[in-house]
């Protein structure tokens, strides 16, 4: 078990290093920032000066070294636009994203799991049909449309909830549902199919033969075996949410990381774009690492490999 975790940790570090390399190279490929940032009436000398100030005239490996040093210093470079350490700007927005993602994730897990389990247990019956429609709608309806419809119903017509912005817990409800529904639908469908797979297995028959109650069969025996694919999808969903959800944030005017990235791209704020991409990729790597460890915890066959 210790060796397994250690191996995964080393792999995570290698991936992280590769990510820094890719992010650095992509930025190089995206063009000359000095040229993009310079005002239209800038002379070639002005531009050359800007290049020097921004460190773009140094050899590539030196630039990469500086880039790495910036990351290791914890500042992640300075934003062109805000003239502040990128990490400070990101940290300013991240709690909002975390709040929204957390709330959506709670909805996803509670509703997605229970819908999936109930659909599997009542396969072919009315609840299953209802669940299918619910899941299909979640996956088919565009997020912006759903957000606007919720707003129309609950804010404009019923006047129960604030239309947008951040503040009280009431502000959180509609964005969390909007963001969560798509993921809830995917979790519900996956839970249903993997529960159906498990409920059909011999060890489930065996548990029934032993006299295990219906709830014990479903929750103890089948669900634990069905967990691994659900965990994989759930964790990926969570990272997607953590990296910001541009549409939901835009519709509900939610000051999260997603909108920060879009703003940074539009203003050619390269250090900030690099920072958000890098942190986003690290989330993927970190969450994957956690999930790998969780797999091993759940499934002894992985643990003893």
């Amino acid at each position: 078990m210790k060796r397994y975790i250690l191996k995964r940790l080393v792999q995570a570090f290698v991936s992280l290093f590769a990510v820094t390399l890719i992010v650095f190279m992509l930025t190089q490929l995206s063009g000359d920032p000095a040229l993009l940032m310079a005002p239209p009436d800038a002379t070639p000398r002005d531009i050359q000066e800007m290049r020097e100030i921004m460190g773009l005239t140094k050899p590539l490996h030196v630039q990469y070294g500086i880039f790495l040093a910036d990351i290791l210093s914890g500042e992640f470079g300075r934003s062109f636009k805000w003239d502040k350490p990128c990490i400070a700007i990101w940290l300013d927005r991240f709690p909002n994203t975390l709040l929204l993602a957390g709330a959506s994730m709670v909805i996803t897990i509670i509703i997605g799991l229970s819908f999936g389990i109930l659909s599997a247990v009542h396969v072919g019956r009315w609840f299953d049909q209802f669940g299918k429609i619910f899941a299909l709608m979640g996956q088919a309806l565009p997020v912006f449309w759903l957000g606007l419809m919720l707003m129309y119903l609950f804010s404009v017509k019923l006047r129960w909830l604030p239309t947008s912005g951040m503040g009280s817990w009431e502000h959180l409800i509609m964005p969390a549902i909007t963001l969560g529904w798509f993921f809830t639908a995917s979790i519900a469908r996956l839970t249903r199919s993997s529960m159906l797979d498990e409920l059909d297995r011999d060890y489930i028959k065996m548990a029934k033969i032993k006299g295990v109650s219906r709830s014990g069969i479903i929750l103890r025996h089948a669900l634990k075996n069905a967990t691994i694919p659900i965990l994989t999808l759930g964790s990926l969903n969570f990272v997607f949410m953590l990296n910001g959800t541009v549409i939901t944030e835009t519709v509900f005017n939610w000051p999260g990381v997603g909108r920060l990235v879009v703003e940074a791209i539009f203003t050619r704020d390269f250090p900030l774009v690099q920072t958000t991409v890098l942190i986003g990729a690290s989330f993927f790597i970190f969450v994957n690492l956690m999930v790998d460890v969780l797999y091993a915890y759940i499934d002894p066959r992985i643990r003893y490999q």
Binding site: D202, K210, P300
Partner: peptide
């Protein structure tokens, strides 16, 4: 009343 199934490889819960 108890029962043994055909395939021992799948009769036990792997977890």
């Amino acid at each position: 009343i108890s029962m043994i199934l055909q395939d021992p490889m799948t009769s036990l819960n792997p977890l």
